[in-house]
C-alpha cells in the first residue's frame, strides 16, 4: 500500500482529534452553536431565491427553486469551503510542522472530514426545507449521500497540491477565496444544467464538480442519476487525481518543514 496512505491510517486518531477540536472551536463560543452550521446554507438559499424569483421574477426550474438551490449548494460547499479550509491547513499548523513529526497528509484531510459534519447538518436542514414544500427525499436519498465520497476525494486531491503551495505563497488563500466566489457560476447550483448552451456543454462538463452536484440533486430529490456519464467522469478524475496528488505530496512533504 502507498506509504502516505499507510501513514494516514496510522494518524486516524490524530485526524479524529483535529476534527473534534475544529468542530468544537466553531460551535463552542458561537451564539447559535451547531445551528450556525445549518444557518449558512439556509441564508444563502434564501438570498438567492429572493433575487432570482422575487426581484428578477425568473422561473428557472420545475422543482421549487429553494429546494433546487439548496440541494446543489450542499455538495458544492464541500468543494468551496472544504478546499479553502484544507488549502490553508498547512499554513495554519506550521508550528506543528516545524516542531512535531507526524504524517503531514493528515492536515489537509481533517478540514474535509470536518466539512462532512456540515454536510450532514445541511442535509437535515434540506429535509426541513423539503417539508415546507410538502415534499420528501426520494428513496435514493441514502445513495445520494454516498456521493460525498468522490467529492471528498476530489477536494482532497486538490488540497494536497494547494496546501504546500499556500505555504510558499501566503496569499494563495485570498486568491482561492476570490476564485471560488466566481466558480459557483461554473457549476449548476443556481440554474439547471439544461440551460448551458450546447457549444459550452463539453467544456462545462469537464469540471468534475458538475457531475457530483447534478447527480446528488437528482438522486436525492427524484431518485435517479440525471447524468451517469458526468458522475463517472468525476469519479475517474477523483481517483487519478488523488493518486497523482499523493505522489506529489510525498515529494514535497520532505521539504515542507524547511520552507515554512
Amino acid at each position: 500500500m502507498d506509504s502516505t496512505v499507510r501513514g494516514l491510517w496510522g494518524a486516524r486518531g490524530l485526524v479524529g482529534t483535529l476534527v473534534s477540536r475544529d468542530v468544537r472551536a466553531r460551535t463552542r463560543q458561537a451564539f447559535f452553536g451547531v445551528g450556525w452550521i445549518a444557518i449558512q446554507p439556509l441564508i444563502a438559499t434564501g438570498a438567492v431565491t429572493l433575487l432570482v424569483r422575487g426581484v428578477l421574477g425568473l422561473e428557472l426550474t420545475e422543482t421549487p427553486y429553494p429546494v433546487f438551490v439548496m440541494a446543489g449548494l450542499l455538495p458544492w460547499q464541500i468543494f468551496s469551503t472544504g478546499i479553502a479550509a484544507s488549502a490553508g491547513s498547512l499554513v495554519q499548523h506550521r508550528d506543528l510542522i516545524t516542531q512535531v513529526p507526524f504524517p503531514r497528509a493528515a492536515l489537509p484531510l481533517y478540514p474535509l472530514v470536518s466539512k462532512l459534519i456540515d454536510f450532514g447538518v445541511g442535509v437535515i436542514a434540506l429535509i426541513g426545507v423539503l417539508a415546507l414544500h410538502q415534499m420528501a427525499p426520494s428513496t435514493g436519498a441514502f445513495l445520494a449521500i454516498l456521493l460525498v465520497i468522490p467529492a471528498i476525494v476530489l477536494a482532497y486531491a486538490a488540497s494536497l497540491i494547494l496546501a504546500p503551495l499556500a505555504l510558499a505563497a501566503r496569499d494563495l488563500d485570498r486568491i482561492l477565496a476570490f476564485v471560488f466566489s466566481f466558480l459557483i457560476y461554473a457549476v449548476p447550483v443556481l440554474y439547471p444544467l439544461e440551460r448551458i448552451a450546447p457549444t459550452w456543454q463539453t467544456l462545462y462538463l469537464a469540471n468534475p464538480a458538475v457531475g457530483i452536484v447534478v447527480n446528488f440533486r437528482s438522486l436525492f430529490l427524484e431518485g435517479f442519476l440525471i447524468s451517469p456519464g458526468a458522475l463517472l467522469w468525476s469519479c475517474c478524475v477523483a481517483v487519478f487525481g488523488l493518486a497523482l496528488a499523493l505522489r506529489a505530496f510525498r515529494a514535497v512533504e520532505q521539504v515542507v518543514a524547511d520552507v515554512v
Partner: peptide, 18 residues
C-alpha cells in the same frame, strides 16, 4: 525570499529537491 520558497515547493513537486 519568497521566490526561493515557491521555487522550493515547485521543485519538490517535480522530484528535484534543492
Amino acid at each position: 525570499g519568497k521566490r526561493v520558497a515557491v521555487g522550493g515547493v515547485l521543485r519538490a513537486f517535480l522530484g528535484r529537491p534543492n
